[in-house]
Design a protein around this nucleic acid. Structure first.
Lengths: 336, 336
DNA sequence: CAAGATTGTGCAAACGTTTGCATTCTTTTT
DNA sequence: AAAAAGAATGCAAACGTTTGCACAATCTTG
């Protein structure tokens, strides 16, 4: 009733040694089929669950993947998590999830803590960590997969959206729709994805023969509030210089922009076109439905797990870059 | 470089026994201040992290809270998770999170698996589990906190939104705004919160002297799609019998309804008033902004952890019921 | 100054597994 | 029929901690 049954209890009942039980439950061919089945029956009977602590202690690692993320409430993160959970569950792995609130120091602390739990590997989402941190990574002997962060090192792998391409794709779409004055609402400062999307935006402009204008970069941090503020930035631009379109770092800030536009009586897409990035689930219900770049977030999560498992199995692992797709909805209007 | 340092390594360097190291790091007054500091210095030097596996093995439990949730992508869940993470991190606990996809069998499987990890306690969100399951609960000797599920048993505690009250509050608001024909868009069938919100809806109607009409219950499951369908249900009602307001089980389906209404040219709130439940972050940016009942989700998460910790510390724990607040925005219109 | 109390430290067992090696028993081979 | 090989199982060590108990050294106390 109270104490969980151990391998010894099963051994006693079956009249064999603990080692035999261990081997039987591991389906080792070294133990006869008959005893194997008998032991399995007893184990089921007792509702035996192996002590992961003991197993982890002797094996030196546990069937747990450590996951580190800057936040848990962002829908983009939630979607990646969903992919992580699906793939890791199928592989018999659990996940220990830690949030850093964007604090690099805490990120290091979390890595330590997770290693203390003998995690088999680490998956780190949108790392904000600095160089000091790279030294630590070199010390770690479990494989690490970075999602949308781009790090290098021994046993360090990457799964990422090709953000530069995505930024280019979004901007190019706006150009093709006839927009000539396109602003970019930036994301969090140190983020790699932010830098890459901005670079894609710039390249698209230059491909089209336009020069990059710093004036058209609106500071932001990917939050709803940043989107709201961006609309006011737009309203404050002299009429003649107002961009006809804004490409937002992510959907969340694009949605904030949309909402504020509605409240301020600015019609989207008639007065202003808005482009997002991510294609999080809620974009489908925004008004107007948001044109955006699909980032295959769930897939990103599944692939991160797959890469980690391959690394654990000593299979070759290569960095993966996923290109997003344009999702055309109704927040961008063609102009002449 | 490769192998993590153990307590023995520290002992060797410090020239003391492993037991002393263990006690020193635990700040035991049984070891002199001098050695304590010396040992701590060496531990820092080596970047020592204790093996949770070993600790968990000998102590019989680990500083991990097992969390079970039907899904990870729902914003309501994400918000509860945020509260969980915050509170548990502050208390030095990690979280092992498992998702069930609403499958009761899998819920049991997950409980087993988490117990295998020696979790100190369990927090179970929106459990869909049945009676067969209650037998299992009685067997478990770690404390369990159910969030929005209502179970009873030894060492079983509840933290929940008072959904009946919330349903009553929402419906009463609609009645006060002059609505006389109010439909209810239901949530997932077996859910307790669904049942309770529906009961509150009914009580409010009866308080106002109206009779409950089964005809006005729209089947649903809390998804965006269910919201969309609900609008078509509404469109298909004979003009004279069309409800003037719909109270939705949750914000997600309310948002779906809003989106479909926009696409079908139905003006909210002019032609139809819509009420949500949860007050998830995105409701603030819906168009029109959604009137809803705030469910204090993050707080729910924090309180769940607090209850669990109290139970672990053998402090008295009582079930907690949180009443939501009405958030009046613009999706409900007064009619005469 | 002897006896007792106090302080600081070490020994060794225990937690529940896995696994290399040894052992026993049965079968095959020569 | 003896020797070798194979099959099934057991023994015991190891993983890295915590902790009750024993021990030694120092300090009080009468």
């Amino acid at each position: 009733m109270s104490q969980r049954p151990s391998i010894k209890d099963i051994a006693r009942i079956a009249g064999v040694s603990p080692s035999t039980v261990s081997r039987a439950l591991a389906e080792s061919p070294r133990v006869s089929l008959a005893t194997r089945e008998r032991i399995r029956a007893i184990a089921d009977e007792l509702a035996y669950t192996p002590s992961q602590a003991a197993r982890s202690l002797v094996m030196g690692s546990s069937p747990i993947i450590g996951v580190i993320s800057p936040t848990l409430s962002d829908p983009y993160i939630a979607s990646v998590m969903k992919g992580l959970e699906e793939a890791s569950h199928n592989a018999g792995y659990q996940r220990l999830v830690a949030s850093t609130r964007g604090d690099a120091a805490r990120e290091i602390e979390m890595v330590r803590m997770l290693l203390g739990h003998n995690v088999g590997g680490l998956i780190i989402l949108s790392s904000r960590a600095q160089d000091a941190y790279r030294a630590l990574l070199a010390q770690i002997d479990v494989p690490i997969v970075f999602v949308n962060s781009l790090h290098t090192g021994p046993r360090v792998y990457n799964v990422a959206t090709d953000n530069e391409y995505g930024g280019w794709l979004a901007t190019t779409h706006l150009l093709q729709q006839g927009h000539r004055c396109i602003a970019y609402l930036a994301g969090p400062n140190q983020g790699r994805s932010q830098t890459a999307r901005a670079a894609g935006y710039r390249r698209a402009l230059e491909d089209a023969g336009q020069s990059f204008r710093q004036r058209l970069i609106i500071p932001g941090d990917g939050s709803i509030r940043a989107g709201r503020k961006a609309l006011h930035w737009w309203l404050n631009q002299p009429q003649a210089e107002r961009p006809t379109a804004i490409f937002c770092y992510n959907d969340l800030s694009a949605l904030g922009l949309l909402s504020e536009a509605y409240q301020q009586g600015v019609s989207v897409p008639d007065a202003l076109s808005v482009m997002g990035f991510d294609n999080v689930p809620v974009t489908e219900i925004s008004i107007p439905p948001l044109t955006t770049v699909e980032q295959h977030t769930e897939k990103l999560g599944r692939l991160a797990v797959a890469s980690l498992l391959n690394a654990l199995a000593d299979k070759p692992v290569t960095d993966i870059f996923l290109r997003g797709d344009l999702i055309v909805r109704a927040s961008v209007k063609a102009i002449s």
